[in-house]
Design a protein around this nucleic acid. Structure first.
Lengths: 121, 121
DNA sequence: CCAAGTGTATTATATAAGTGGTACAATGAA
DNA sequence: TTCATTGTACCACTTATATAATACACTTGG
């Protein structure tokens, strides 16, 4: 898992953990049934308080991305097929968000098209 | 000015005010020298405490987007030409951010290209 | 001039968010 | 069974946010 925490980010640390694990699940790095790192291990690795990591795990479970039981490692819970659907939905959502910002900035469809062609080469 | 405040947003209210005014400046709705609404007026309009709006104005001034003097309305301070440069830089930054997320999700350049064509029609 | 309106500053309070420390019961391997 | 490891729960502390109530000095229009 590629986890990097930015303490100076306005985004709370525990939410950064959530995002990182979610991303790992959506991208396919973590699959259904895979165990997550133990709360204490991950906390030690990221130099965080175990409670902070626990908070992230709790949120992930509440969103249905994992399942935890006392005494056993939390495991990823993502029905097969759901992962790819979520992954595509996320990409589309991000692009629509970008488009919305572009419009708010007063750019036209053509302006955006030109930028994309220039950046993407 | 199109200002809408979402009290339930995780983003603090005063930062929402900052973003909204910045966006208005970058999009050209507020130009160099234009007066901002008075702190008290804007607070009444948004049903916020004047202190909250003042905090946003203070931040805007610290970032160089406005200038305030006691007794007179704060005024937008954006050197001509700078606005358009900022506007374009913002668009490009947003797109690169989107591209980064797409890559993190494991999508290829072609995947992204297809999505853009489909969404943009 | 003068009074209304302006940004700025100060102090106080209440609430929520974030983090830290500790204890507990359940799990699972030896 | 034993015991280290696990997720969970609870309490405490600090910080950020938002509101509130004033006060002050400056600008501007009449």
């Amino acid at each position: 898992m590629n986890l990097t925490i930015d303490a100076k980010s306005p985004l709370p640390v525990y939410q950064q953990v959530i995002q990182a694990i979610k991303l790992e699940i959506l991208s396919g790095g973590l699959r259904d049934g895979d165990p997550l790192p133990s709360i204490r291990d991950l906390a030690k690795l990221l130099k965080l308080n175990p409670n902070t990591v626990a908070k992230a795990y709790y949120a992930l479970e509440a969103e249905g991305f994992s399942e935890g039981r006392s005494g056993s490692r939390s495991r990823v819970k993502v029905p097969p097929g759901r992962q790819d659907a979520l992954r595509r939905a996320m990409l589309e959502s991000e692009f629509r968000s970008f488009l919305g910002k572009a419009v708010s900035l007063g750019f036209s469809r053509d302006d955006v098209r030109q930028l994309i062609e220039r950046i993407s080469q």
